[in-house]
Amino acid sequence: MFQLGKTIVSEDVVKKDFLCNLSACKGACCIDGDAGAPLDAEEAKILDDIYPKVKPFLRQVGIDAIEEQGTYTETEDGDLETTLIDGADCAYVIFDDKNVALCAIEEAYNQGEITWKKPVSCHLYPVRVQDYSEFSAVNYHKWQICDDACALGQELQVPIYKFVKEGLIRKFGIDWYTELEKVAASM
């Protein structure tokens, strides 16, 4: 691990390779697991605000879950996350004609209906950020369903930090990312 500003960054973020391979995994990260995508309070408010514009892109089962539980949920620990359908699929997941999971929020963004792309935790995946009072921990979240993404990243030599460049800049800023590139070049 190394320190970069007020972050502690796992070396895996710069040393390991990753490139989403949707044709292999079909977007399993949006439909597997037992928790929604992590959100901060500002993002939860955004979900409330954009829901009317995202709703037309959603599946009925997603609409039903959101209208029953809310645009986001709060865990027993007070963490905020995207709503789930029956404890599994993200309520915002939709499927293309090849049955690949996509994000209705991102689809609304792509079609110019909203100006917010998606939760930053989704934008950063497979990087997970844990905020503490004095610093943020920036780690690689290894998950078996992403083995094909690791293999493709290795084949094409795409380090994790380059794959999630846009998300890292969104979270920490361009100056932070430029410093990360310098650290990566020295490793």
Rank of each mutant, 00 (worst) to 15 (best):
K6C: 03
K6L: 08
I8V: 15
S10Y: 02
S10D: 15
E11T: 13
D12S: 14
D12R: 15
V14T: 07
V14F: 09
K16I: 12
K16Y: 14
K16R: 15
K16H: 14
K16M: 13
L19A: 10
A24H: 05
G27H: 04
A28I: 11
A28G: 09
A28D: 07
I31L: 02
D32G: 02
G36R: 05
L39S: 05
L39D: 00
D40N: 15
A41Y: 04
E43P: 01
E43F: 01
E43Y: 09
A44E: 07
I46C: 05
I46T: 14
I46Q: 08
L47N: 06
L47T: 09
D48F: 00
P52M: 09
P52K: 11
P52A: 05
P52C: 12
V54W: 04
K55M: 02
P56W: 10
F57L: 05
L58P: 01
L58E: 03
G62M: 00
I63Q: 09
A65E: 02
A65S: 11
I66N: 11
I66A: 10
Q69N: 15
Q69Y: 06
G70A: 08
T71G: 03
Y72W: 10
Y72F: 13
T73W: 07
T73D: 03
E76A: 13
G78R: 05
D79N: 13
T82D: 04
T82K: 08
T82I: 00
T83H: 02
I85T: 11
G87H: 02
D89Y: 14
C90S: 10
Y92F: 10
D97C: 03
L102W: 11
C103A: 09
I105P: 06
I105Q: 10
E106T: 10
E107F: 04
E107H: 01
A108C: 08
Y109P: 02
N110K: 15
Q111I: 03
Q111N: 15
I114V: 07
W116A: 06
W116S: 05
W116K: 04
K117R: 15
S121Y: 05
S121G: 12
S121I: 12
H123W: 13
L124Y: 12
P126Y: 08
V129I: 13
Q130M: 13
D131P: 00
S133A: 15
V138Y: 11
Y140S: 06
Y140A: 08
K142G: 01
K142C: 03
Q144S: 14
L152I: 11
Q154S: 14
Q154D: 11
E155K: 15
Y161E: 04
Y161C: 03
L168E: 06
I169C: 07
I169S: 05
R170Y: 07
R170Q: 13
G173K: 07
I174W: 06
Y177I: 03
L180Q: 08
K182H: 08
S186L: 06
